[in-house]
Amino acid sequence: MSALLEVSGVTKTFDGFRAIDDLSFSVNEPELRAIIGPNGAGKTTFMDLVTGKIRPDAGTICYGDLSRDLTKMSEAQIARAGIGRKFQKPTVFEDQTVEENLTMALAAPRAPFAVLFRRTDARVAARGAAARVGLEDRMQTPAGVLSHGQKQWLEIGMLLAQEPRLLLVDEPAAGMTSAERERTTEMLVEAAKTRAVVVIEHDMEFVRRLNCRVTVLHEGHALAEGSLDHVCADPRVIDVYLGRQEAADA
């Protein structure tokens, strides 16, 4: 494995509040990484920084061969470079079918004539993307009638269809049934075999199922890192995040 994302000395302040404080860590390719931490730890701000939604006050965020500094790129340039982001609330085109959602998301020229001539290939690719997220039997179903979990899967499928090198996923297990969480775990583990997948999550059972390296954020910096068992045994993590009883149950 080699480093795909290198965050070095990044700081971000909002109206005097330091949301990210000299944050440094790296993500390899391929790798599955979970980021946990209390509310206000900087998890969402971290994603905003990586995707170019906001700019840091200091530090660098290098990507790819690590010669590209994301802090100097626009949101569109970052997306084209292969970084995809899934927000907590699924954002799909509810009036369109699963197939149409996936087709629109495919990484390919989107000019009208290009789409027209690629229609057959796009349909095949969309079906392949649906199979990756367990929706191959719902291709003609309007996205609006899917369950919450299926909408989450569709959005993940739409991102995977774009073949990102780095996929950022925000609380994918929120609102899911136990069976849906299990399927989502399998989906993310499989995706991380060929790319970097970073998951922000509060559900510790879900994080345990991911069986991956965990970074704990607190007050904008990396407090601890390692396996879930390792970070859960760290007294600092217990004090600021887990609490004594939660740590014993983790």
Score class of each variant (00 low, 15 high):
Met158Val: 01
Pro164Glu: 04
Asp65Ile: 00
Gly220Arg: 01
Gly220Glu: 05
Ala122Gln: 04
Val198Thr: 13
Leu5Lys: 13
Arg80Lys: 10
Glu201Thr: 07
Leu146Ile: 02
Val207Ile: 14
Arg18Ile: 06
Ile36Cys: 00
Asp239Ile: 07
Asp234Met: 09
Asn39Gln: 09
Gln152Trp: 09
Lys193Cys: 04
Ala126Gln: 05
Ile200Trp: 12
Gly40Cys: 06
Thr44Phe: 11
Asp48Arg: 15
Arg127Ser: 04
Gly84Ile: 03
Leu217Ile: 12
Gly243Gln: 13
Val7Cys: 01
Lys12Glu: 09
Val199Lys: 07
Val124Ile: 09
Ile78Val: 14
Val98Ala: 13
Ala79Glu: 12
Ala3Asn: 04
His202Phe: 11
Glu225Leu: 05
Phe113Thr: 13
Arg236Met: 09
Val189Lys: 12
Ile20Lys: 11
Ala248Tyr: 14
Ala247Pro: 08
Ser67Pro: 10
Arg33Leu: 10
Met139Ile: 10
Ala233Phe: 07
Glu31Asp: 13
Gln96His: 11
Glu75Arg: 14
Met104Ile: 15
Pro235Gln: 03
Val199Arg: 09
His218Arg: 12
Ile78Ser: 14
Asp95Ile: 08
Thr44His: 07
Thr71Tyr: 03
Gly64Glu: 10
Leu210Trp: 02
His230Pro: 09
Thr120Arg: 06
Lys151Val: 14
Met158Pro: 00
Phe93Pro: 10
Glu190Gln: 13
Glu171Met: 05
Ala79Met: 12
Pro172Lys: 08
Ile20Asp: 12
Ile238Gly: 02
Gly128Lys: 09
Glu155Asn: 02
Lys86Cys: 05
Ala143Ser: 12
Glu190Leu: 01
Met1Ala: 08
Glu163Gln: 08
Leu5Met: 11
Tyr241Asp: 02
Glu201Gly: 03
Asp203Phe: 04
Tyr63His: 04
Arg127Asp: 01
Glu163Trp: 10
Ile54Ala: 12
Asp203Arg: 01
Asp137Ile: 11
Ala129Thr: 03
Phe17Gly: 07
Glu94Ile: 01
Leu242Trp: 10
Gln245Arg: 08
Gln162Ser: 02
Lys151Gly: 15
Leu23Cys: 06
Leu106Glu: 00
Ser24Met: 06
Ala179Tyr: 12
Gly157Leu: 07
Leu102Lys: 00
Thr194Trp: 11
Arg183Cys: 13
Pro109Glu: 05
Arg68Phe: 06
Arg213Asp: 15
Gly144Ile: 05
Phe117Ala: 12
Glu75Pro: 09
Glu6Asp: 13
Arg55Cys: 11
Val145Ser: 12
Gly144Ala: 07
Val237Arg: 00
Phe87Asn: 09
Ile20Ala: 10
Val115Asn: 15
Ser147Phe: 04
Leu223Ser: 06
Val133Ile: 08
Arg181Leu: 03
Leu223Met: 08
Arg195Pro: 07
Gly134Glu: 03
Pro90Ile: 03
Thr60Trp: 03
Gln150Thr: 02
Val237Gly: 11
Cys212Arg: 00
Ala114Lys: 15
Lys193Phe: 02
Gln150Gly: 01
Ala79Gln: 11
Val240Trp: 14
Lys72Ile: 14
Pro30Glu: 10
